[in-house]
């Protein structure tokens, strides 16, 4: 049997999911103990258990509790949910557009979200309180997605390379736009740079809640439409003849992928390539079935981004912006996939 057999024949890869879940939980615990103030994993577990049960931890300094529960854990969990959310968005975009190079970053959706958020900041829009930035990010992301799709479509068809080229062009224009906003908004330069480079510094439990809600929602939708997405890989006519409403499914999933991207960008800035790398790795291990690919990518995306954030937070001598780190790793990976695809087509 080939390595690409999927759940249809082999069953759901529960063991692999269990391995990923255990790795993620272990990583959260280990990462929470890492940093300027080193705390042992058992103490971290005590603090987390106490935090969730609303009790004080006996025998540990208050600073330990504060550092783990109020400072590190919100950052760590936000990083994990953003990683998971972006990876699921990548799965959705790749499956809908039948394009293995599509992800929120290469499609320009992340830049659109960041532009929307920055624009709101510049004109001081805060009509909906803490939801204002995510909403503006969503508006920016949706608009960008439609512009990119419009730019890339010729005779109603989307070419793989044309789509990515359109995404890169629109993202470049938007980055220049963000740069211009930065120029206009002297006092808030720091915040705008944050959106350009991405960061998990100073995250709160509200950020955890927002990214968790968006990520889990996207995962649930991806699971619900998993088999339809598989069938859509056979093309429009075939999937329609198999009873899949491709046009409706496409719209729902595009909005869903954009929503989770916008929430992630609103909370953590532009973090590229997680949505590209993770589905690829998981597809290599599990095969293309979206019903196992989506949950596996969610968990693996969380693990990858958490590792990257832990490296920049607790291992490197000074903090490198997370978006820079993921781009440094993801950029060459993108080149590899692009080259491989070109060879396959040639």
């Amino acid at each position: 049997m080939s390595g690409n057999q999927s759940v249809m024949k082999r069953g759901v890869p529960w063991l692999f999911f269990l391995f990923l879940t255990a790795s993620l939980v272990g990583l959260v615990v280990v990462s929470s103990g890492m940093g300027y103030l080193a705390i042992s994993p058992s103490q971290v577990v005590d603090i987390i258990v106490a935090g969730f049960s609303g009790q004080d931890v006996a025998g540990l300094p208050d600073t330990f509790g504060y550092v783990v529960w109020d400072v590190r854990l919100p950052r760590i969990l936000t990083a994990a949910f953003v990683g998971g959310g972006l990876a699921v968005a990548g799965v959705l975009f790749q499956a809908i557009l039948l394009n293995p190079l599509a992800d929120p970053y290469t499609l320009g959706v992340s830049s659109g979200a960041a532009f929307g958020a920055c624009l709101g900041l510049l004109v001081n829009l805060s009509f909906l309180g803490s939801c204002s930035v995510p909403l503006l990010a969503f508006s920016g992301a949706v608009t960008t997605l439609f512009v990119v799709l419009w730019l890339a479509s010729v005779d109603g068809r989307l070419g793989t390379n044309t789509l990515i080229l359109s995404g890169v062009i629109v993202a470049a224009i938007l980055s220049a736009g963000i740069g211009f906003i930065k120029h206009l908004a002297d006092e808030q330069v720091g915040v705008i740079i944050f959106w350009l480079m991405g960061s998990f510094a100073s995250k709160t439990w509200l950020d955890v809640a927002m990214t968790a809600a968006a990520g889990c929602f996207a995962l649930a939708v991806a699971l619900f439409y998993g088999r339809d997405l598989n069938i859509m890989a056979l093309g429009h006519r075939t999937s329609e003849s198999l009873g899949v409403d491709t046009s409706r499914t496409r719209k729902i999933l595009l909005v869903c992928g954009t929503l989770v991207t916008a929430t992630c960008v609103a909370v953590s800035g532009i973090i590229g390539f997680i949505g590209l790398i993770t589905p690829h790795l998981m597809r290599f291990i599990l095969g293309p079935d979206n019903r196992s690919l989506a949950p596996a990518s969610f968990l693996a995306g969380a693990i990858l981004l958490l590792i990257a954030d832990t490296i920049t937070r607790a291992v490197l001598p000074s903090e490198v912006p997370i978006g820079v780190l993921t781009a440094l790793i993801g950029g060459p990976f993108f080149c590899y996939i692009f080259r491989k695809k070109q060879q396959e087509q040639g």
Binding site: N4, N230, L234, G235, P288, D289
Partner: peptide
Amino acid sequence: EFRAGFDFSVFE
């Protein structure tokens, strides 16, 4: 015409 976006097996 038939094109497959991802490498599903023939059985799938």
